[in-house]
Structure formats: C-alpha cells, structure tokens
Nucleic acid binder design. Sequence first.
DNA 1: CTATCGTCGATTGTTGACAATCGTCAATGG
DNA 2: CCATTGACGATTGTCAACAATCGACGATAG
Lengths: 214, 214
Amino acid sequence: MRAPLPRINGDSRRHQAAQILREAIVTGQLKPGDRLRELELSEQLQVSRGPLREALRQLEQEGLLISYPYRGTEVLGVTQEEIEEILIPIRMTLERFAVRHALPTMGEEELADLEGIVDDMRRAASDGDGRALSDADIQFHDRIIEQADQPHCRQIWDMIQPRVWAYFRRDADTHASLDEVVAQHEKYLEALRTGDLETALAAVDQHLTDIPGS
Amino acid sequence: MRAPLPRINGDSRRHQAAQILREAIVTGQLKPGDRLRELELSEQLQVSRGPLREALRQLEQEGLLISYPYRGTEVLGVTQEEIEEILIPIRMTLERFAVRHALPTMGEEELADLEGIVDDMRRAASDGDGRALSDADIQFHDRIIEQADQPHCRQIWDMIQPRVWAYFRRDADTHASLDEVVAQHEKYLEALRTGDLETALAAVDQHLTDIPGS
DNA sequence: CTATCGTCGATTGTTGACAATCGTCAATGG
DNA sequence: CCATTGACGATTGTCAACAATCGACGATAG
C-alpha cells in the first residue's frame, strides 16, 4: 500500500463550483452586494443547478453569501470589527487547540513539510508575489489544523478561514511586508521544532496578534 | 403596515427536513455512528432528494453529520474535550460580542421579552420538564444574539450551538438542577437590566463558566 | 389623482429519472 | 491455498423539466 497517485479529478462538481466561487469572492471579482442568479452561474460554470445550489448553501454557511427565499443570493461583506472581535479570537481558540493536539504527533517528516511551505513563502516573497505568499500562508496553517486530526476543529476552521481570507484580500491592502510574513512563520515553525507546548502556544498567540490575517 | 399574521408554512422543505433531522440527532433518536441513506430518508420525510441533500449538507456544516463521497452520511459525535476546549470558548467570544452590541439597543420591550422567556423557564422547572427548560434556555440566548443584529455573529452561532446542544442532551445527563438553571438566567437578566456593559459581560463569563451548556 | 388589485415575467424551489462510483464477493489463475 | 480481477448491487452524484413564489407594472375604480 502506497500513497495513491494524484487523483485525476477527485472533486465533485459541487466542490469545484464552491471552490471557483470562493476564489472569485475572495479575490474581489465578486463584490459584497453583487447578486447571484443560479441559472446564469450554472451556465458559466458548466454545472447543473443541483450541485450549484449545494455549493451556494455551503458558501452561505462559510459566511461569504447570504440568500433570501425566492429572491436570490448576494455576496456578503465582513466588517473590521467582526474580524477583530469575532473571527480572529475564534481562530486563536482553534489554532491553540490544534497545536496542542498536533505537536506531540509531529515528527521530522511533518516539520520538513512545513519547512517546505516556508520555502515556498520565501520564493513568493522574493518574487513579490503576494498571491502565492497568501496561498502558502493558508496552506501552512491548514497543515497544522490537519495534523491535529480533530473533526470539529477542522470543520469550524473551514467555516471561519474563508471570511478572514476574504477580508484581508479585498478590504485590507495594508499588509505586513512580504518579508515580515515569512519571518513570522519562520519564528513560528522554530517554536514548533522545540516540541515544547508552552513555547509553541506562545508563538501562536504572537503570530495571530502581530499579523492576524495570516 | 402591521406585523404579518403567522405564516401558513414559511419554511422550505429543505428547512423543514433540516429541522426534523437536527431534532432527531439532538434528542438522540439518531446516535453517533448511525448511517443515513438519502433514499430512505427522503421517503420517511416525504421530501425529494434535492432539498434533502441540501439539508444534509447544512447539518454537515453544523457538525452533526459527516459524509463520505459515494459511501453515505453518518451521525457525528462530539467529545467532552472538543466541547470544553473549542465550542464553549467560541460561544463565549460570540456571546460577549453579542452583548456588547445588543445592550445599547435593549429597551423595556426587549427586556420584557427576555423576562417572558425566564417565566417559561420557571414554569418548565416547576413542572420538571427538562425539555421545555432546554428549549427556553436556547431561546433566551438566541434572542440576545438576534438583538445584536450582526450577521456573522448570528451565522457562526447557528453553526456552534447545535453541537453544544446535542452534547448536553445526549452525552451529559449531569445537568445542573432545573432550579439552578432558572436562577442563573435570572441573575444574567438582572445584569442586563443594569445597562452597564462591564456588569453584563461579567455575567456572561460567569454564566457560561458555571453551566456551560446553557 | 391615488390606491388597490390582477397579471406577468423572472427567479428560486422541487421532483424523478439517469449516470458515476464504491464495496463486495465470487470466479479465475497461479 | 492465496492473490487478483471482473461483474454486480447499493448508494450517491448529476441533470433537465416542472411547480411555486416574488416584485413590478399597469389597469381600474373611487
């Protein structure tokens, strides 16, 4: 038994549609207040309305859309206050929990994976590619959540993360400098390497306090 | 213009199906590990598979179900650790935020509404009706969240609350006494009546610390 | 002129049939 | 006897047609 080769296309149409729409909202192609019509979308995405509707419901639960019965679905915004007072604190709760569970199970292999992601971040930063940096950033934290292997933690994470991501990509151009983001993750990873829980948790707190969007 | 008379049946079939299944899971009629088949459910609920699937996706996002592609959907449990380390802290974040927003907008009318719910709780407690007490409890907190009128807060609340509810109704019979629950809410309501933010927030903290499930 | 009511187009809600995928188990070959 | 493979039944994934509902507009009565 070995790891399966990369799947041809393991994602259901629902999943694909959700991903495309999420991307469009997060990158600002779809702006808060824009109305979405199911028929139009299903034609553009080459997906029937069945799976599309399920995708819309999912994005609704992710806080990116809001729908009104018989009257359509529209893109929902997030305020800075909601980000700071709700979403970031929840992220902190989740990531602290995740680290507590992930840390004991992290061997050299897992740490090397994270190091690889940080390498990607370094490349992206030196290329000035904010988009690639952001992707790697998300991947870094995703990996930690994944490693914790706690279904509810993972599930709530998937619910919270898109809102934060959307906010920082469309409403807040005032990012930390690219290099700063890389440096922060290097520090975070180093704390994980010590294997000491308190050190790691302190790194989580500092990381999310300094650059809350990443 | 007056408030519309109670709707004949304003809920879509998706909503109805979701509500029935949520209730069944929360009350323990459906237990963790039980497998759900779409065709069977759609026959029992008299709903076609389309809306049913959307309902299943919603309950999946609420953390009550988990589904595996082409292999079915099953009821998901919650561990005590997840409740204590993730769900209760998140509830605390949400309810503190909600109180901060709701308090300034609470007039005599809103406080009287809450008082009415507490009356219901008193009745339920003296009847020994734990189910009615639980319903009123949820309604009490729902009302506060509603009053805050913050879409993301409300939306995440709806995501978190069913898990907590399910846990305390099926896994933890060790409740506080019925009268204790009533007394706690009386104290909470009184703190809201003062109109002082710090007093109210302290009440939230104490409330969720003492009887975290309510 | 104004308010009410009926009609209509647009859009979402629902359905049942069809297609794709998975796990199982028996047949086959070594 | 064991491993591999192929076919089968069960179940979910997808689709396109049909029904229900909403908001808007214009006709009509006062």
